[in-house]
Structure formats: structure tokens, C-alpha cells
Design a protein around this nucleic acid. Sequence first.
DNA 1: GTGAAAGCGCTAACAC
DNA 2: GTGTTAGCGCTTTCAC
Lengths: 345, 345
Amino acid sequence: MDRPTIDDVARAAGVTKATVSHAYSGKRPISATTKARVFAAAQRLDWVPSSRARALAARRTDAVGVVLSRDPTILASDAFFPAFISGVEAVLAEHEIALVLQVASSRTAEERAYRAMASGRADGVIVLDLHRVDWRVAYLRQIRLPAVLLGAYDAESPFSSVRTDDATPVRDLVARLREQGHTRIAHVSGPLDYVHSHARAGAYVRSVGSKELLREGDFTAGSGRALTAELLDLHDRPTAILYSNDTMAIAGFSYARSRGLVVPDDLAVAGFDDDHLSAHLSPALTSVFTDPFRRGRVAAERLLADLAGEPPESVTVDCNELRLRASTAGAAPEAPHTELEEEFS
Amino acid sequence: MDRPTIDDVARAAGVTKATVSHAYSGKRPISATTKARVFAAAQRLDWVPSSRARALAARRTDAVGVVLSRDPTILASDAFFPAFISGVEAVLAEHEIALVLQVASSRTAEERAYRAMASGRADGVIVLDLHRVDWRVAYLRQIRLPAVLLGAYDAESPFSSVRTDDATPVRDLVARLREQGHTRIAHVSGPLDYVHSHARAGAYVRSVGSKELLREGDFTAGSGRALTAELLDLHDRPTAILYSNDTMAIAGFSYARSRGLVVPDDLAVAGFDDDHLSAHLSPALTSVFTDPFRRGRVAAERLLADLAGEPPESVTVDCNELRLRASTAGAAPEAPHTELEEEFS
DNA sequence: GTGAAAGCGCTAACAC
DNA sequence: GTGTTAGCGCTTTCAC
């Protein structure tokens, strides 16, 4: 009553297990008739090769891993992750390769998770949330786990990477706001040690020529709100704020509204990532669509190519698209005074 | 230059591999000194047990699977899935158990995916999007793969399940709208062969006493829009519409607005699932929070309990919470006439 | 074109 | 408390 094994199939087909194995893998010529006998026997016995045994013998798991260093609760409210994973799965599903997910919230836990991947849970991994100086790059090389990095890693690395140009949309957006008369444009970034936050913030600073109105957030609604408060409390407050994701933008936007400011008349607001509901807010939120689905596809394809023996490569996905909406429409307000507005809040 | 094996460690520690194995598993008493020698040797050699070999020998993978029958592109815009997975991971991470995800978009692909899980990719699975008559229940039993069903499965099943009460919030919402004077209350459901869609629709029908204003959607924005159009075209159109998820509600809401209707004055609108941005829409969307994170936790805990040998059990998670917001506030409009409104659209 | 047999790196009886 | 040994169910040389 146990699951049948390759031996059972071999016996039923009157061949040896080597033949059964090769009939399926095609790694050696098998006569059409034996092949047919083998398949028939397998079908009759309802045999499915054991992935465990296969993994051990072939030193290959047919799975790809992702280790998430984020807190599980944060995963839930993130526009990027589900779309990215969908893209990855779209490719993996075609090859019947599984995706192994592991969440690790401390560095030790994360190292253990990567070691587990290397010890046979996965054949390679995709690394998200890349830091500008990322211990994982050295670590993965040390444990010799194939990887694809999502983001532009500056230092030398033996790994493939999937890059995007986050600077252009930021630059375009600043230019646009300038045309509309904005002179005090602020930026609420994500943690600056992330490569993507840093790229966006860097483009912002180069565009506006100053770090005065740059504030470092952490992608959560709480930080969006707090830093917006800080910016609006300035004597010479900004008339436009660019946020490094939509969650912070929406939090900032709600907060500004609670202070009696009208978006976009008193304050222009823009996000990043283009959450699927952002276009439905009112005013609709200007955002940058970063096509996480497509980046997921490309990352998965790249990893499969690496695993197939191709040399590592850095591919740049040109996917970012500035989506101008009502939250940044219209002319900049003239000389806003914080005091005045507080009377109406 | 190859990864060290348990034999290397045993040799280095001057013991046999059984001792090394037991020093880690604790499945037999090992003297403190030998244990220390073993750990030291392992650390020195930088040994990590091979999950592949371990899985084969122990007939256990230390992974839990989820097979998604949805199209990968749909995953991306779904409020439920990421939060649910986060909840699952929150539990699995503590036990260093991995989550194996596989997307399958046809029945054959899905069967293959489950067989792959059963053949060693995972020790058990969590089944989402349960149908009222679900072939997977019989199939999983046939291939003897432990499972936890998410939703109330009516027929006999040997599996644990995690249920919620979707009827109460629907009933409460209908009652509430009645109090506000609504008499024509419609419902745009999800596919009625899903247990959760069916439960919601059933509660709705029992509350309003008629199927006249029930329309079957498919959880996509497109169907939300189309069915809203259909309902608003009725001569005696509804003054309130309940949708079975927020995506359809928002699509319907935008469409109604495009026809010149004001929410909630002309039309009250409510969703289900409470997407994290729904409270930020204006008017803020009334919705039912279903705590997918918590349900993920419970499902994972239940599955681990099953795998540990406990008898299957059906647990009900009391997590649904009706969140009344502006989109259903105020009194019902009096005798709405479709013709009249069209003049202003 | 097929068979025989040696692993893959562990776990778990079974000894002592 | 520790050693010996037989698997787990495949893949892959090496023969013929």
C-alpha cells in the first residue's frame, strides 16, 4: 500500500531501473517498444518519481528560493512583493519548478535560511531588497549558492542582476513639478542603504540640487505620516512631496488633508510603485509604475539561465513609467504660509 | 572542495555518523562531551546537513505547500493572498519550515503540482479557494497528502479545515442599510461555486429575501464594472450594492461616479476584504475585514498539528469585522429614477 | 540498446 | 551512551 518505486515499475515492465530512469530523462536512447512498456507500467502502477530521491541523486532540487528579510506583517501591505512573485511564478510554472519562500527576521535566521537553501532546498535564489553594501553577496558566494540580485549592485559580484532605471522617472517628475511652478520640492525616501531607495533619493538630490528637503523614511505608513508632519512644520514648507512608495504617499496625503491642506492645490503629492488602487484615490495619485511582474519574470528567466550554465549577466529592464495623475496636477500654490493654514485645520 | 558530509564530521569528531545525527536530533541521549566534540567539528568544517539526504532518509521535507490555481497575473492585485501567506510564514518561520509555492493554471497542471508536493516537495498543503464541490479533496485523499482546507467544506472530508463566519457581517450590513432606509439592496458576488462567495451570497439572499438583485461576478474589476452597469440600468435600480471583494467594489464605485452618481448619497457601496488602501479612498469604503494574516497563522498551525500526528480538526476563526465607513453613510436616496440621473451623466 | 552496481548523505533499527 | 548496518529511491558510471 506504499507508494510504488522505480523498482516496482522496472519489475512490472520487465526492465531495470536504469532503463526506467532513462526512458523518462531521455539521457540515453531507449527503444520505442521498451519505452512504451515502461510508460504503461508506470501509469498502471500510478507511479510518480520521488522528488526527494531524485534531488539527492541528481544534486538538483528543481526549486528556486527567495528569502525575505522583511517582517511577515510588512509583506501584507506591500504592492511590490505579490506582483513580483507572480512574475517569477509565471516563468517557473512553465518549467514545473517550485518556488521556496522563507521569511527570516534576523541576520542569523537569514543566514540559516540561505544555508538551508544551499543544502538542498533550492538550486538558486533571487535576492530582493538589495543593500548598497550587502553581506549577502559575499555570503552567497561563500556558500556557493547561485543567485540573481534584484537591483544594481555597485561592487564586484559574480552574480547576475536585474536592474532598472529609477533615476529617470524621478528626474522627469521633478522637472514637471518645476514647470508647474514648484520650487520647494521635498522627498521622503525609503531607507537609504537600499539600492533602490538610494537611487531614487540620489536622482532627487541631483535634480533639486539640495538635500535640505530630503527625509529618510522606512516605507511604512507611520514614517510617511511623521516625515510629512516634519516637512509641513517647516517655516518655508514644501509645496510638493515625492514619496518613495505609495504607502507613505497615501499616509502623507491623508495627514496633509487632516491639516486642512487640499491636494494638489496646496500640496502636490506623488508616490512610487503604483499600487493597484492608487489610481482610484481622489485625487488619483501620481506614481511610478515599476512593473514588478515583469521584473519577476526577468529575474526568474535569468536565474534559470544561470542554472543552465550560462555565464552571469546584468540585464536592465526598462519598465519604469511615470503616471501623472490629479495629485500633482495644476499650478503650485504661491508662497504658502504654515501659520495661515493652521487656522483652518 | 566539496561540501563536507556527516561522515567528515563524524571522522573529525572521532565518532560515527549515527552519533552526529543524534547529537543534532536529540533522539537519543548523547554525553555532553561527545556532543561538544561533534558540534565543534561541525563548526570547524562548516557543515550543514543536506536537506536532500535528510528528506530522503526521514521521509520528511520540512516544507509546506500551496498550489495556486489562479492565473499568475491575478495574484498581483489581490488583497487576500499576500496577507495570508504572511500569516502562514509567521508560523513556519518559527519552525524553520519552508513554504513551497506552485502556480498551476489548468487542472492537469494542478494535479501534477499536487503530485509533486506529495512526492516529496512538501509534507502537507494548504488548500485555498475551496469550491463547494472540490475535486481536490478527493484527489488529495487519494494521493494521501495531508492538507488543511481554507473554508467550510460541506461534504465529508478527512482533512482539517479553517472556517470563518462570512454570513454575519453580510447580515449586519444589510440590516444596517435597511435602517438607513435602503430597500433595493444588490449584491455582486464572486463565483458561486466558491464556498466563501457562496456563503456571502447565501447570507445576502436570506437577508433580503430575494435573488432578484444578485449578480454573479468573478472578483475582477471588469466584472465589478459590468455588473454595476447592469444593476444601474434596471428601471428600479438598487440604492445600495454589496460587493464580494474590494476590487469589484472600487470598480463599481468608479463606474457609478462616471454616470454622475454620488457615493453614498445616490448609491451606497460596500466591499469585502478591506484592502489596505480602502480606508483612504474618498469616500472611504465600507468593507469587511477578514484578517487573512490571522487565518494564515491558524491554517499553518493546524497543518503542523496534523503533521505532528494530531487528529484532523475544524477550527473556526472569528475574525470578520464589518468596518462601516463613509461609502455607506447617510440616508438612502428617495425613489431613484434611472432616467433622471442619465441627464446629468 | 540494456543491465549491474555504486553511490547521493542522511536516518533509524538493531546491537552491545 | 555509542557503533554497525541497512535502507530511503533515485541517477549515473561502467560493462556488455
